[in-house]
């Protein structure tokens, strides 16, 4: 059957892991905006520097939801340092690839992870080299990850 997405993407989209919100998260980050067409929120629970739980809520297309699902799977059980090393490409690889035009949806996931860890670092006065240069509120254009709002 010819479909837009591969089976793994469809599986994570139709039956996503880690959907939800946390009562008392140790860190929480949001990335994207409804205007742009996708917005992802990640909450994390951290014990001894290890992400023991992760949840997400995503407004977005099929690949944004699938990326959220695998990204939260990927960070669970990882140390903060390890989680910060996860790149857009890692999320893409884990999904087994996305159509070229959808690649920006996986950018959303790695940024949302960083935003959640940033929040955790802020709350606990921690410093992570992997967060160097990351500011969740900076650079509106980048936040829109290619979301082009130009209309005639």
């Amino acid at each position: 059957m010819a479909t837009l997405y591969n089976d793994k993407v469809i599986k994570h989209f139709t039956d996503p892991h880690n959907v939800g919100e946390m009562q008392n998260p140790d860190g929480e980050g949001t990335y994207g905006s409804p205007v742009c067409g996708d917005m992802m929120k990640i909450s994390i629970k951290v014990e001894n520097g290890v992400i023991v739980d992760a949840k997400f809520k995503t407004f977005g297309c099929g690949s944004a939801i699938a990326s959220s699902s695998v990204a939260t799977d990927m960070i669970k059980g990882k140390t903060i340092e390890e989680a910060l090393k996860i790149t857009n490409q890692d999320v893409l690889d884990e999904l087994g690839g996305l159509p070229a035009i959808k690649v920006h949806c996986s950018v959303l996931a790695d940024h949302a992870i960083r935003a959640a860890i940033y929040d955790y670092a802020q709350r606990n006065g921690k410093y992570y080299a992997g967060l160097e240069g990351f500011d969740p509120n900076a650079d509106e254009e980048d936040r829109n990850h290619g979301c082009d709002m130009e209309n005639r």
């Binding site: 067409g37 297309c61 944004a64 035009i101 979301c147 209309n151």
Partner: peptide, 10 residues
Amino acid sequence: SACSSASLTP
């Protein structure tokens, strides 16, 4: 939706 268009514009 923008997500469905080749140009990613709504």
